[in-house]
């Protein structure tokens, strides 16, 4: 069973996503900032998908994705942001991210996000 990592400084968002994905059958680790998430990654099991908020207390989301990608190249990312004017930086696009990975807050329905997570947990070579 793969691990899903959530980084979001809004506790109830974090908790709700965690609950939904757990109900879907995943193991979910959720953190309010990047630093504790990194700590957890160093000690715990490998993580397949990370749902990253953009505005975070210790680091901005883009930098966090770059850092995590450097450390865990297999990790896939979904972006969950409250900023309507968010644009994907080119270097992140280069990593294979596109608009389909970006989810605008608020999510009235978490099902599409769960579907996306499900898609990303499938090994790349097997994806449609």
């Amino acid at each position: 069973m793969a691990w899903i990592l959530i980084v979001d400084d809004e506790e109830m968002i974090r908790e709700n996503l965690k609950a939904y994905l757990e109900d879907e059958g995943w193991r979910v680790a959720a953190f309010a900032a990047v630093a504790p998430a990194l700590c957890w990654l160093q000690t715990g099991d490998p993580c397949q998908v990370c749902i990253m908020d953009m505005r975070l207390p210790d680091m901005d989301g883009n930098t966090a994705i770059r850092t995590l990608h450097q450390m865990y190249p297999e990790m896939e990312f979904l972006i969950h942001t409250g900023s309507s004017s968010y644009n994907l930086p080119d270097d992140l696009r280069a990593l294979g991210l596109d608009e389909s990975r970006v989810y605008q807050k608020p999510l009235s329905d978490m099902a599409p996000l769960a579907t996306a997570v499900h898609m990303l947990t499938v090994p790349r070579e097997n994806r449609i």
Partner: peptide, 13 residues
């Protein structure tokens, strides 16, 4: 958006 998210996601859960 965050509180709205909480409201809607919470309701959904």
């Amino acid at each position: 958006n965050n509180p709205l998210g909480v409201i809607m996601q919470g309701s959904q859960n």
